[in-house]
Amino acid sequence: MTATTMRAVVLDGPGPLSALQIRELPVPTPRPGEVLIQVKAFGLNRSELHTRLGLAEGMTFPRVPGIEATGVVAACPGGEFAVGKQVVAMMGGMGRAFDGGYAEYTCVPVAQVIPFTSSLDWPTLGAVPEMLQTAYGSLTVGLDAQPGQSILIRGGTSSVGAATAVLAAQRGMTVFATTRNPAKADALKQLGVDHVLIDDGEVAEQIRRIVPDGVDTALELVGTPTLPDTLRATRIHGVVCFTGMLSNEWLVENFYPLGYLPQGVRLTAYGGDASDLPAAVLQEFLDAAAAGRITIPVDQVFSLDQIREAHGYMESGGAVGKLVVAL
């Protein structure tokens, strides 16, 4: 028997940490084509920070934020998923166009749901969906990364950066990753990073001392402030994929391609959705973690009551890997 009310985090509008309010809400009623998920854990994302800071487009308030959730199926009127099935859900308007994962239950379109089977604990599972989707999509769709190539991860201690390092190391790539904090170097090494670069805004010179022609591929997770330097770190016919905006800056003012882009370096971007993460890739990743072959980079786990503390920590940039709320 599904509960009739639930605890949820609500934003009445953009604001400081105090704008994150925990309230009792009715449990949503799923219609055919929707899935009601009992949320066991959810990861925190910069997207939700943008929502709280008023930087996100397409927002209506009041809103339960959260672009992802991990849990079990509580109801599925169309029968697409069995009740009790382990699932993740992400994107597709979650937390923006409709209420998202910062709640004990969330109701999402069937298309945003991916099933899996795992005995890993819920906080670990909760770290995976959006982080893996973004890292996997950036490597495959964005960069077309190949075994043996080199990759620069600009923003290596972010959750997506950490997951990309794990996936790139799995592929036998030579992994360069940046951090502004030398104390985080060992944590990056443990994820499979070969060369940790301390980011002072200029890492292209550091890269070219190790690989004179530049890296084959580069993942930009910091944003437009570091993008020109990331482009300069990349070889002719190499690819730079713009995926993240840790800096909260994503516009290039007065963009003049001939002056901005180094000759022969290719610039692309990746956004992604649930449909970009095949169920088999999710299952393989979870199985590899369960077998100890890879590490799922979880920095810290919070309770729902600690949502303001968690958001404050996310905003501070102190984490190495994913921040998770477990219910």
Rank of each mutant, 00 (worst) to 15 (best):
M6Q: 09
P14F: 11
L17I: 15
L17E: 10
A19W: 06
Q21T: 09
Q21Y: 07
V27C: 08
T29K: 07
E34L: 02
F42D: 12
G43T: 03
N45E: 13
R46E: 11
S47T: 14
L49N: 15
T51P: 02
L55Y: 05
L55S: 07
P65Q: 03
I67P: 15
G71I: 07
C76G: 08
G78K: 05
A89Y: 06
R96F: 08
F98W: 04
C107M: 01
P115C: 03
T117G: 13
T124H: 11
A127G: 14
V128S: 05
E130W: 10
Q133V: 13
Q133L: 14
Y136V: 04
S138W: 00
A145N: 05
S150L: 00
R154T: 02
G155A: 00
A162K: 01
A162M: 01
T164A: 03
A168I: 05
M173R: 12
V175A: 05
F176A: 04
A177S: 07
T178M: 10
N181E: 14
V193F: 00
L197V: 02
D199E: 04
D199M: 06
V211H: 14
V211M: 14
P225L: 02
T226R: 11
R232M: 10
A233C: 06
I236D: 09
H237M: 12
H237I: 14
C241N: 02
M245T: 13
V252L: 09
P257G: 08
L258W: 15
G264C: 02
V265G: 00
G272E: 00
D276H: 15
L282S: 12
A288L: 04
I294C: 10
T295P: 13
D299M: 09
Q300D: 15
Q300I: 14
F302W: 13
F302A: 14
E309Y: 12
G312R: 07
G321D: 00
